[in-house]
Computed example of a mutant assay.
Amino acid sequence: MTTPAQTDYFGLTIPLMHLMGVIPESIGPGHARTRLPWREDLTNSRGDVHGGTLMSVLDFTLSAAARGNDLQTGMATIDMTTSFISPGNSDLTIEARCLRMGASIAFCEGEIRNVKGELVAKASGSFKIFKRRPGGD
């Protein structure tokens, strides 16, 4: 399993993840883990991490799990279903795994947990697989 530098989003530059403060922790075949430190500017009116933020970090981490087999592969989200279980009111850990990798579509699932290990949200998604062009595009 590879542990990337904090500014490297598993070989990609992703300004939105940088803006949100996502920390990529590990990636390997069919698996990825990221962390999202709680910040007030990521919260809703109740002080919990906003659902849109949770969906964004799940989307990134699920697609990273699919890329874990080949970091030169690109992913585009086809669909993603998210269930919110409890408020995200602490630092959060996002774990994702690739359930199946076909020739053109990957199927992934993942969870967000708080610092107590309690489930905050879970998601499943499908991703179109494509070869990235030289130059990282």
Results as ranks from 00 to 15, higher is better:
residue 1 M to G: 14
residue 3 T to R: 14
residue 3 T to F: 06
residue 4 P to A: 07
residue 5 A to Y: 12
residue 6 Q to N: 15
residue 7 T to W: 13
residue 7 T to H: 14
residue 9 Y to W: 10
residue 9 Y to S: 01
residue 10 F to I: 00
residue 10 F to L: 10
residue 11 G to Q: 03
residue 11 G to I: 07
residue 11 G to L: 05
residue 13 T to K: 10
residue 13 T to A: 15
residue 13 T to E: 15
residue 14 I to Y: 09
residue 15 P to M: 03
residue 18 H to R: 11
residue 18 H to A: 15
residue 18 H to G: 13
residue 19 L to Q: 13
residue 20 M to P: 00
residue 21 G to H: 02
residue 21 G to I: 02
residue 21 G to W: 10
residue 23 I to F: 06
residue 24 P to K: 02
residue 26 S to E: 13
residue 26 S to A: 12
residue 27 I to F: 05
residue 27 I to H: 11
residue 27 I to R: 01
residue 28 G to T: 05
residue 29 P to V: 07
residue 30 G to R: 07
residue 30 G to K: 04
residue 31 H to D: 03
residue 31 H to Q: 13
residue 33 R to L: 09
residue 33 R to A: 06
residue 35 R to V: 09
residue 35 R to A: 11
residue 36 L to N: 03
residue 37 P to A: 12
residue 38 W to Y: 15
residue 39 R to T: 04
residue 40 E to C: 05
residue 41 D to M: 11
residue 41 D to N: 13
residue 41 D to R: 15
residue 42 L to F: 11
residue 42 L to P: 00
residue 43 T to P: 04
residue 43 T to M: 09
residue 44 N to W: 05
residue 47 G to H: 06
residue 47 G to I: 06
residue 50 H to L: 07
residue 51 G to L: 08
residue 52 G to N: 08
residue 54 L to P: 03
residue 56 S to V: 02
residue 56 S to D: 10
residue 56 S to A: 15
residue 57 V to I: 14
residue 57 V to F: 05
residue 60 F to N: 08
residue 61 T to Y: 03
residue 62 L to V: 05
residue 62 L to T: 07
residue 63 S to T: 08
residue 64 A to Q: 03
residue 65 A to Q: 06
residue 66 A to L: 03
residue 66 A to Y: 04
residue 67 R to M: 05
residue 69 N to E: 12
residue 70 D to H: 06
residue 70 D to S: 04
residue 72 Q to F: 09
residue 73 T to K: 05
residue 73 T to R: 08
residue 74 G to K: 04
residue 74 G to Y: 02
residue 75 M to E: 10
residue 76 A to V: 03
residue 78 I to G: 04
residue 78 I to D: 10
residue 78 I to A: 10
residue 79 D to N: 10
residue 79 D to L: 04
residue 80 M to G: 05
residue 81 T to E: 14
residue 82 T to L: 05
residue 83 S to A: 12
residue 83 S to N: 14
residue 84 F to T: 07
residue 84 F to C: 00
residue 85 I to A: 08
residue 87 P to N: 07
residue 88 G to C: 06
residue 91 D to M: 11
residue 92 L to T: 02
residue 92 L to C: 02
residue 93 T to N: 12
residue 96 A to N: 09
residue 96 A to C: 08
residue 98 C to W: 01
residue 98 C to Q: 03
residue 99 L to F: 01
residue 99 L to Y: 00
residue 99 L to N: 07
residue 101 M to N: 07
residue 104 S to R: 13
residue 105 I to F: 00
residue 105 I to K: 01
residue 105 I to Y: 02
residue 105 I to T: 00
residue 108 C to P: 03
residue 109 E to Q: 04
residue 109 E to L: 01
residue 109 E to N: 07
residue 110 G to W: 01
residue 112 I to G: 05
residue 112 I to C: 12
residue 112 I to F: 07
residue 112 I to N: 11
residue 113 R to P: 01
residue 113 R to C: 09
residue 113 R to S: 13
residue 116 K to E: 14
residue 117 G to E: 13
residue 118 E to Y: 04
residue 118 E to Q: 14
residue 121 A to L: 02
residue 122 K to C: 10
residue 122 K to I: 00
residue 123 A to P: 00
residue 123 A to K: 08
residue 124 S to I: 03
residue 125 G to W: 00
residue 127 F to C: 02
residue 127 F to M: 01
residue 130 F to N: 04
residue 130 F to G: 00
residue 131 K to N: 13
residue 132 R to V: 09
residue 132 R to Q: 15
residue 133 R to F: 11
residue 133 R to T: 13
residue 134 P to N: 15
residue 134 P to F: 08
residue 136 G to S: 12
residue 137 D to R: 15
residue 137 D to F: 14
residue 137 D to A: 14
residue 137 D to S: 13
